[in-house]
Amino acid sequence: MSLILFIEQALNGLQYGVMLFLMAAGLTLVFGVMGLINLAHGSLYMIGAFAAAAVAGATGSFLLALVASLVCAAFAGVLVEFFVIRRLYDRDHLDQVLATFALILIFSEGTRWIFGSFPLFLDKPDWLSGTVMLPFGIEYSLYRLWIILVGLLVAAGLFWMIGRTRIGIRIRAGENDREMIAALGVNISLLYTFVFALGAALAGLAGALIGAIQSVQVGMGEPVLILAFVVIVIGGIGSIKGALVGAILVGLTDTLGRSFLPSFFGLFLEPSSAMSIGASLSSMSIYLLMIGVLLFRPKGLFGGI
C-alpha cells in the first residue's frame, strides 16, 4: 500500500463523509428540536438531485442548478411540514414512521411520473472538471475537492448559526424546553417550519452535489438515509458537532475498508477467500464502528446541539 494511494482514498472518504454530513445535519436537527423521526428525508435528497439535473439540463448553469436544489427541497420541506408533519408532533414515533414512509412512496411515484424511470445525469461544469495537484505529488479530482470545501463551509455556517445567532438560541432552547419558549412568545410553529426547511435544503444540496458523480434516479435517497441514521447514532442525536465527526468517521471507515481490507487479508489467505472476507467485512465496517461507539458511549460521541 503506497502513501499516495492511502491519501487519495482518505480524501475520497472525507468527501463521502462531508456528503453524509449534509444529510445527517438536517436529520439530527429535525429529530433533536422537533422529536420527529423523518424517514422521508432521503426523498428530499432525491428532490434536490432531480431539481438540479432538470435545471442544469434546461439552462446549462451548474450554480443555478445548485440554487434550484436548495429552493425546491426547502419548498418541498415546507409543504410536507405544513400539511403532514405538523399533525404528528404529539403522536408517537410509530405514527411518524408510518406517515413519513408513506411520503417516501408518494415522492418516489411522483418523481417517476414527472421525470420517468430512466436516470438523469448532471454534468460537472468545465471550471470544476479535471484534477488538481496536491502536495506529495497527489493528483486529485477538483470536483471532489470542491465538495469537501463546500461541505466544510456549510458546517462552519451551521456552527455559527447555532452558536452565535438569535435563531440559533431559539433552536437550542426549543430542543431543551419547547413549552417554555412558546410561553415566552416564540412562534414555535414557525420555528419548526424553519428547522424542517433548513434540513430539507441541506439534503437537497447533498443530492445535487452527488448527482454530478453518480446518476440521478428514483430511490437514490434511501441508502444514504440509512447511513445518515448511522451517523447521528454515532455522533449523538441532536448534535451538529456529532453529525460532522460521525459523518467523517463513517466516510473514512467505509472508503478505507473497501479499498484496503481485501488487500490486507490477501497477505494471509488465498486471493478468492481474501476478496470474499474483505468485501464482507468492509460492508459491515460502519455498523461495527457504530456498535463499538455505543458500547462505550451509549448516547453517541456528543450530546445536544
Rank of each mutant, 00 (worst) to 15 (best):
Met275Ser: 14
Leu289Ala: 06
Ile85Gly: 15
Ala76Thr: 09
Leu20Thr: 02
Glu222Cys: 13
Ile171Gln: 01
Trp160Pro: 10
Ile240Ser: 04
Leu3Met: 14
Ser285Ile: 13
Phe264Ala: 07
Val233Met: 02
Ile234Lys: 07
Asp177Tyr: 12
Gly221Leu: 09
Ile188Met: 01
Ala156Ile: 03
Ile237Glu: 02
Val18Ser: 02
Gly246Glu: 05
His93Lys: 12
Ala53Glu: 11
Gly48Val: 05
Gly242Leu: 03
Ala156Glu: 07
Leu134Ile: 05
Glu270Ser: 14
Glu139Gly: 00
Ser263Ile: 00
Glu270Val: 02
Arg164Pro: 10
Ala274Asp: 11
Gly251Tyr: 10
Ala73Glu: 08
Gly116Tyr: 10
Gly13Tyr: 12
Leu63His: 14
Val231Thr: 08
Leu63Lys: 15
Phe83Ser: 04
Ala58Pro: 07
Gly116Trp: 13
Ser282Gln: 12
Gly42Val: 11
Arg170Gln: 04
Ile188His: 00
Ser280Met: 15
Ile171Trp: 02
Ser283Pro: 11
Arg87Lys: 12
Leu149Ser: 09
Leu39Gln: 05
Tyr16Ile: 04
Glu139Pro: 00
Ile277Met: 09
Thr131Glu: 06
Ile7Gln: 11
Phe31Trp: 14
Phe136Pro: 01
Phe260Trp: 06
Pro135Ile: 02
Trp160Val: 15
Gly266Lys: 06
Gly235Glu: 01
Asn12Met: 05
Val132Gly: 01
Gly199Ser: 13
Phe75Met: 10
Ile213Asn: 12
